[in-house]
Amino acid sequence: MAQADPHAPPSLTRLDGKTGARRHFRYFDYAMAAFVAILLLSNLIGAAKLATFQGWTFGAGILFFPVSYVLGDVLTEVYGYANARRCVWVGFFALLFMAFMSFVVVAMPSSPDWGCAASGDALFAGVLGKTNAGTICQATYVSVFGSTWRIVLASVLAFWAGEFVNSYVMAKMKVFTKGRYMWTRTIGSTVFGQAVDSAIFYPVAFFGVWTSQSVLEVLLTNWALKVLWEVVLTPVTYAVVGFLKRREGVDVFDDNLDFSPFARTEAV
């Protein structure tokens, strides 16, 4: 039931979690689309690349993947846990479809006449003389899009668990702080959510492929960098949250909601 919130700006109406779940919002669909797009692209392009910069070794996906967590914070803060839960499930099934599509496309036989950047690279000129352009292109295509079942499983599990932990902590801290000190919950939720994400993804995806030292080093480094990203982007989070709350005219507090990931979202 809607009621006045003494800690919210005067122009905003406080909604409880269930009311927020049933309400239609003007910008929710755009936020969800951005969330899913960044999630898919960061997993497709950057997840498997190991990079080193000035002595630091890290997964290249760290450059963009944390933005999905920032959007997760925005979704929970503005639209409530129930709507954020919808986004997590949409992202989960989108990841599964991406994995299935990648498997089918990569497995299809390549045409011998298929040309690509690798087949025209002088570095592969000797190989091209012994085979055909399609073989070279297929090999490079597999190296980019041919994720193993372990990486797919790790991505899906880590995202699912990490995002739900992130949203849960965010929503609970908002109620506890009565909507104040948003920076404490954006950073705090990231500390826990990204810890779960990294603790699942890197061991499941790369243990036995990378050395144990590399797995642990990248896990801890990426977790720290993700949290640092959240700190750096805090002003952006404040700006986006402020804009959306003013446009939507409400502030959602999840003080009477079932937080189970499998609970039915009561949305129109």
Rank of each mutant, 00 (worst) to 15 (best):
A47T: 03
A47N: 05
A48F: 00
A48G: 07
K49M: 14
L50Q: 11
L50R: 07
A51Q: 12
T52N: 11
W56M: 15
F58E: 03
L63R: 01
L63H: 00
F64Q: 15
F65S: 12
V67R: 00
S68C: 11
L71Y: 01
V74R: 05
L75H: 07
L75F: 08
T76P: 02
V78E: 14
V78C: 12
V78N: 13
Y79R: 03
G80I: 10
Y81M: 06
N83S: 09
A84H: 09
A84S: 15
R85N: 04
W89Q: 11
W89N: 04
F92Q: 13
F92L: 14
L96P: 07
F97A: 15
M98Y: 05
A99S: 13
A99D: 10
F103V: 08
F103M: 04
V105E: 13
A107D: 09
P109M: 00
S110P: 04
S111M: 02
P112I: 09
D113N: 11
W114C: 00
A117Y: 06
A118L: 07
A118V: 12
G120K: 11
G120Q: 11
D121F: 03
A125C: 12
G126M: 05
G126C: 04
G129K: 14
K130L: 15
K130T: 14
K130V: 13
T131E: 01
T131K: 00
N132F: 05
N132D: 15
A133I: 07
T135P: 04
C137Q: 00
C137T: 02
A139S: 08
A139P: 01
T140Y: 03
T140A: 07
Y141T: 09
V144G: 07
V144E: 06
G146T: 02
G146Y: 03
T148P: 04
T148Q: 10
W149K: 14
R150V: 03
R150K: 11
I151A: 04
L153Y: 02
S155A: 08
V156Y: 03
L157N: 07
A158L: 01
A158Y: 00
A161P: 02
V165G: 03
N166Q: 03
S167I: 14
S167D: 15
V169Y: 00
M170Y: 08
A171S: 04
K172E: 11
K172C: 12
K172T: 12
K174N: 12
V175F: 02
T177R: 14
T177M: 13
R180C: 07
R180E: 13
Y181P: 01
M182T: 08
M182W: 06
W183C: 13
R185Y: 10
R185W: 06
T186Q: 11
I187D: 10
G188R: 06
